[in-house]
């Protein structure tokens, strides 16, 4: 390798290394912060302290950690499954069974992505009230199930679904729903994995809508619990950091176990 190429190479590593470091730094900060007291954290102490057990104990005392964690998990998992089911079926339907009427509806669906959520909250809230769903987890999930973005994503991915597979299945006498369930879904596993990662993260991290629609302590999600800890009159940053980690672990976990399929699935969606 020539010296100038070597220098370029070193530059590339330095740049990527620095960017990767900046990307993970807040994670490190969170982990170091868990072991420190508030007073040290606000003064920027970046060495491990000895307050971890105290912070952890306080977190589990102040927030009903197992309950809020369970609530979040329930909402995120059921919400993700429902979203993937409804939106992938629709994305498939829009792509395979084209008609002018459905294309127009698809256009409207894409337009809904542009509407800021803040303005939909009041009417959505009224609807949930009429359905008797205020303060239920189902009310948190329902508005996200038919997501314009996920429908779009699956329609794009379906374009890469080989039509020979479908034709062969039709010749074999499979019904359309069977083709979808037995041929499409297994073939598109990595597309589902990628969508799962993104939808799960969105559902797990959702804040504004659960805040409005959930009313009692026993329904709260972990993000709501952390936000009330962080906005206490005198917040304990050490405790908040413990909560932050607990709230981040599931999304990290989902990402790591699905990482390979995730990148694979992205491939399909951007063709």
């Amino acid at each position: 390798m020539s010296p100038s190429r070597l220098a370029t190479r070193a530059g590339i590593y330095a740049f990527l290394g620095l960017f990767a470091f900046l990307s993970v730094f807040p994670f490190l900060w969170m982990i170091v912060g868990m072991t420190n007291r508030t007073g040290d954290i606000i003064l920027g102490r970046f060495t491990l302290g000895d307050a971890f057990l105290e912070n952890a104990r306080n977190f589990f005392e102040q927030a009903d950690a197992p309950l809020v964690f369970w609530n979040s998990a329930k909402i995120a998992i059921l919400g993700t499954i429902a979203t993937l089911a409804v939106s992938s079926i629709a994305g498939y339907g829009f792509e395979i069974f084209r008609s002018p009427a459905r294309e127009r509806i698809y256009g409207v669906l894409l337009l809904t992505i542009m509407i800021p959520f803040a303005v939909l909250m009041i009417p959505l809230f009224v609807i949930m009230g009429k359905l008797g769903l205020i303060n239920t987890h189902i009310a948190v999930i329902l508005p996200t199930v038919a997501s314009g973005f996920v429908v779009f994503y699956f329609r794009q991915a379906t374009k890469a679904f080989p039509s020979e597979l479908r034709d062969a299945a039709r010749v074999d006498g499979l019904k359309e729903w069977q083709i979808f369930l037995y041929i499409y879904v297994p073939t598109m596993r990595s597309t589902y994995a990628a969508a799962f990662v993104i939808v799960f993260m969105t559902a797990w991290n959702n804040y504004l809508w659960p805040l409005i629609v959930l009313q009692t302590n026993d329904k709260k999600t972990i993000t709501l619990a952390i936000s009330s800890l962080a906005s206490a009159y005198y917040p304990d940053y050490g405790v908040v950091m413990v909560g932050a980690l607990v709230a981040t672990l599931p999304t990290l976990f989902v990402f790591f176990i699905m990482q390979r399929q995730f990148v694979q699935g992205m491939l399909g969606s951007v063709k």
Binding site: M121, I122, F125, V126, M128, G129, K130, G132, I134, N135, L211, I212, Q215, L224, S227, S228, S231, A232
Partner: peptide
């Protein structure tokens, strides 16, 4: 809830006219 959150939830509940809220 935090104070802004109480205000926001109250305003949403009052505006929607949903008593259970």
């Amino acid at each position: 809830f935090s104070k802004p959150d109480v205000e926001q939830k109250l305003q949403a509940g009052l505006a929607s006219g949903v008593a259970e809220a």
